[in-house]
């Protein structure tokens, strides 16, 4: 079998056009070329075979350069899209590209819930930005508010789902985050709607950019927006409280519960004033609360052992939970005694 092939290959090696034959053929071809010149119209279409063409099989260099440039440009566009609001050209990029990509990283339901709360915050920021620009067309404000509602719905559904699955921790924490978000942004809108000129800070994640408003932005549109946000905030806080109540009972039975929940960041000032005197023993002052809270977030991992060591103290504290919502701090305060 191989002989045949060898024979063929050998023959092939010795088969070629003689120099004379080759030149003769070339001249014939040139004659033909002259007789049939390139047609004029398609000049512009002709070019050097592009190193970027996908059809060339060996141009990895060209294609990889294109890919790198594309990624860089895409990165720039995404970055620029971050500050857009509904109505801007790049807003779709913000929602469908940036947010999809960042959302894709969230795998667990909890991570997804956290991301969705973040999304609500973004929608709130957009509402604020639009409210701060009085010359914006009114429908955009509608759109922004609708978006806000939609994303808020999603978060609420998540909370419901956690509740159904008896996942107390996630439900409570998500609810608390949501109320937190509403709280901080309600404040901004409140300020905006007051009759005083104000300085607002944008709460975007990467930078804090102070935005100075020349005059008050109080108007009808913004008042309705503010009211809506207030209502939403109220609902969120109510839900949070409900869930806390519900799952608090479960915690009584578990003495080895992991790190405690982080309570809502911003409390109404009125609630602070209601603090019963008897709790002062265990409750640190408000300023210290902030300190502790920061240590809570960073030392969460080391917290559990300390908590479980004092089950007795916990029982006592649980009874006092109804009074205030700063149970978490009490536990630490108790240990810090």
């Amino acid at each position: 079998m191989e002989n045949i092939i060898k024979q063929i290959k050998k023959g092939a090696k010795h088969t070629r056009l003689s120099v004379a034959e080759k030149t003769e053929m070339k001249s014939a071809l040139v004659r033909h070329m002259k007789a049939n010149p390139v047609s004029g119209e398609l000049f512009f279409a002709r070019s050097i075979p592009s190193p970027f063409s996908i059809n060339n099989f060996r141009n990895k260099k060209g294609i990889s350069i294109l890919v790198i440039i594309g990624l860089l440009m895409g990165g720039t566009v995404s970055f620029a899209a971050e500050n857009t609001v509904p109505g801007d050209a790049l807003f779709p990029v913000k929602v469908y590209v940036n947010e999809s990509v960042r959302g894709a990283v969230a795998v667990t339901p909890k991570a997804k819930a956290d991301w969705e709360v973040k999304l609500v915050e973004r929608r709130l920021e957009e509402v604020e930005k639009i409210a701060m620009a009085p010359d914006a067309p009114p429908d955009i404000q509608q759109v922004a508010e609708k978006n806000l509602e939609r994303y808020a719905e999603r978060v609420k559904n998540r909370i419901e789902k956690f509740d159904e699955d008896e996942d107390g921790d996630d439900a409570v924490e998500t609810a608390s985050r949501l109320s937190k978000v509403y709280n901080s942004h309600e404040q901004v809108l409140l300020d905006m709607n007051s009759n005083v000129a104000f300085v607002a800070t944008s709460t975007s994640t990467t930078t804090i950019t102070p935005v100075v408003a020349k005059s008050s932005l109080k108007n009808e549109k913004n008042s309705t927006t503010l009211k809506k946000v207030q209502v939403a905030r109220g609902e969120a806080e109510k839900k949070h409280k409900e869930l806390k109540e519900k799952y608090r009972k479960d915690k009584d039975n578990e003495s080895e519960k992991d790190s405690p929940k982080i309570s809502p960041k911003t409390l109404d000032k009125s609630e602070n004033a209601k603090t019963p005197v008897e709790d002062n023993k265990y409750t640190p002052k408000i300023e210290r609360v902030e300190e502790i809270r920061s240590t809570v977030t960073t030392t969460k991992e080391t917290a559990p052992p300390r908590v479980s060591e004092t089950p007795e103290l916990k029982e006592e504290e649980y009874q006092k939970r109804d009074e205030t919502s700063r149970e978490d701090n009490k536990e630490y305060a108790g240990d810090a005694d």
Binding site: L17, M25, A28, L29, H32, M33, N36, P37, V38, S39, E41, L42, F43, A45, R46, P49, S53, N55, N56, F57
Partner: peptide
């Protein structure tokens, strides 16, 4: 046949069409 092949290729190229491979 070989010459004919190249003639045809020229006819194709003279119309401005690109050949990738």
């Amino acid at each position: 046949l070989a010459q004919g092949t190249f003639v045809r290729v020229w006819d194709y190229m003279s119309q401005g069409k690109e050949i990738d491979n």
